[in-house]
Design a protein around this nucleic acid. Structure first.
Lengths: 193, 193
DNA sequence: CGATTCTTTGAAAACAGTCAATCTGTGTGG
DNA sequence: CCACACAGATTGACTGTTTTCAAAGAATCG
C-alpha cells in the first residue's frame, strides 16, 4: 500500500490525514498477477482498475487477422484498465496481461466514486491523473500522425527509456504501430549513423 | 451561456442551483473568434480553455518541413485548448484557429480550479469530460496503430459524420495521418465497391 | 469573371509489410 | 555439461501501400 500513498501524496496538493489513509486503504484489494495471466480479457467487463505496485503489464487488442496490437504499456506507479468498459460497464475490446509478475491494488468503479466523494485528496488525484493521461495521449496521437516510424521510435526511446529496458522489441514495434521487422531495420539504420 | 448550462446539466448527475449558475457564469468570458483567427498560436501559453457555443475549430502543429498536422477538430459543445500548456504554463506546440466563425466561452486555469472547489457539479463535469476524452483518444490510438488508411477513414465517417460535413477532405486526411492524395484515392476505391 | 481553395489524377520513388529462413541468447531437463 | 526447446532479433527478396510532386479539374466566393 505504501507505494500508493506515496503516489497520492505526490499528486495531491494537500497532504492526507490518517483517516483518509484508512478510508482509501479499505477500498483497495491487494492481488498478485503472475506473468502471462490476465487482469482483463476481451469480452469481459473491466470491474477493477489496477494500480501497479510492482511489475509490468500490457494492454492489447487482436484484429481480424489475429495480429496483436499493443495499445498501452504499464509499469510501477501506473494505472491499468479499460476506461470505457470500466465506466460504461460494456464488454472490453482489450486484453490486459502481466508481462512480468505483478503486485497490484484493485479498486472497483463504485468505490472510486465513493472515494471521490469522501476524500478530496483522492478526487484531486483522479483529476490530475486524467490530466496527465490526456496530455500523454495527445502527444502520442501527434507523434503517430506526424512522424515516420523512425522518428516515432526515436521519440519513444527518449520519452520512455524504462519501457525499452523492460519490453522486447516486437512489443514496442506493435506499440508504435509498425512490425517487428521494420523496427529491426530502423534500429540498424540508426546505429550506422 | 445557455448552451453551456445545458451541457453541464447533461453531464452532471445533480442539477445545479440558481446560485451555481451565477457563480459559473461569472468565471467565463464570452468571445467571438472569426474564421482563420487564432485561439492559440504555437509558442504561446494557453491561458484559456474554450467552450464552443457555435462554430468549428481545429488544432494542428507544423513539422520541420512546414506540413500541418491536424491533431483535433472541434465543433459546438466541445472544449478547445492545449491541456499541457494550460496546466503547466509552458509554450504550446500547437495552433488552434477558427475554421468557421465562432462564439466561445473562455475560462482560465485559476478559475477552473476555483470552480472545482466551489461547485461540485462543475467538478463532476470536468471528471466526466476527461473520462470521455480519455476514452475517445484511446480509441483513436487503437485505430491509428491497428488499421490501414482505408479502415481508419471508414471508422471516422461512421463515428464523426458531423466532422465530415464541416471540414474539407484535406483537413480530415491530415487528422487521419495520411495525405489528401491518399484520402482521395481511398474514397474513390470505396465508391467503386 | 478572376482568385482562391479544394479535389483528383498519373507516374515515380520512398516506405512499410509479409513470409520464410537464420541467428542469438536463455533456460530446462536429461 | 550438453542437447534441446523457446522466445526474440535479424535479414533478404518480394509485394503492397503511401508519399511526392506537378498538373489539371471542380467548386466556391467576392
Amino acid at each position: 500500500m505504501d507505494s500508493l500513498f506515496n503516489y497520492i501524496n505526490k499528486y495531491a496538493s494537500t497532504l492526507m490525514s490518517e483517516e483518509d489513509f484508512e478510508v482509501i486503504q479499505r477500498h483497495f484489494i491487494q492481488k498478485r498477477i503472475r506473468k502471462k495471466q490476465y487482469l482483463l480479457a476481451e469480452g469481459e467487463i473491466c470491474k477493477y482498475f489496477a494500480f501497479i505496485v510492482k511489475g509490468a503489464m500490457r494492454k492489447y487488442c487482436i484484429d481480424e487477422k489475429g495480429v496483436e496490437h499493443t495499445v498501452d504499456l504499464y509499469i510501477e506507479n501506473w494505472w491499468a484498465g479499460d476506461r470505457e468498459s470500466f465506466v460504461m460497464s460494456t464488454p472490453s475490446a482489450y486484453n490486459i496481461d502481466a508481462w512480468e509478475d505483478c503486485e497490484v491494488l484493485l479498486i472497483s468503479r463504485e468505490d472510486t466514486l465513493k472515494l471521490c466523494q469522501q476524500c478530496p485528496a483522492f478526487n484531486e488525484l483522479l483529476l490530475k491523473l486524467d490530466e496527465r493521461n490526456n496530455i500523454a495521449t495527445q502527444k502520442r496521437i501527434t507523434s503517430s500522425i506526424s512522424f515516420t516510424a523512425e522518428k516515432r521510435y526515436q521519440r519513444f526511446v527518449q520519452d520512455h527509456p524504462y519501457f525499452v529496458q523492460r519490453f522486447p522489441q516486437h512489443i514496442i514495434a506493435s506499440y508504435l504501430g509498425i512490425t517487428k521487422d521494420t523496427l529491426s531495420r530502423v534500429r540498424k539504420k540508426a546505429l550506422s549513423k
